[in-house]
Amino acid sequence: MDITTTGARTGRPRRIEIWFYRVDGEVYLTTQPARRSWYANLLRHPDFTMHLTHGVRDNLPARATPVHEPAERRRIFAAIIADLDHPRHRAYIAQPVEPIGEWLARSPLMHVTFTD
């Protein structure tokens, strides 16, 4: 899927392709450990548009909330890593996936709430 965020510094729309993850019925945005401009954009401007681009096509207004609480981050990342560390996963991420400590220390994590 794609998301359109508002640039943190420029205020301009920024559209990128990104993976989303479902954990316990909730939707999250994250990546392998790294700094990401989409995360900075969502911290500054949490309202964004999620564009469904495969199969069903739609534009969904949404709001991002950073997940900072350590136990919650650990629970969510453990579920995501367990899914990614499966040999038949289609995310094309090298196996095995980086240890959870790296994700906890260096990965952005946003909870998505649909606003429409």
Rank of each mutant, 00 (worst) to 15 (best):
H86I: 00
Y39V: 15
E102L: 10
P66Q: 04
A40N: 09
V67S: 08
I76M: 01
I100C: 01
L29E: 03
I16Y: 00
G101D: 15
P61W: 07
G101E: 15
V97D: 10
R57E: 15
H86C: 04
H111E: 10
I76P: 02
E69R: 09
D116Q: 09
M50V: 15
P99F: 07
P46V: 05
R14C: 00
E26F: 03
H68Q: 12
A105F: 12
G55L: 12
E69L: 02
V97G: 09
A8Q: 02
H86Y: 03
T31C: 02
T115N: 03
T4F: 06
L43E: 03
A34Y: 12
P87V: 11
L52P: 03
L42G: 00
A79Q: 09
R14H: 00
H89N: 15
A79F: 01
V56W: 00
A82D: 14
L104T: 06
M110A: 09
L84C: 07
T65R: 15
T113H: 12
R14G: 01
A34Q: 14
R22P: 05
V27K: 01
Y92R: 15
D85V: 07
R106Y: 13
T49H: 11
G55T: 10
T10M: 06
R12K: 14
R75Q: 09
H68C: 07
E17I: 04
A94L: 13
A64H: 07
A79S: 10
A64Y: 06
A71Q: 13
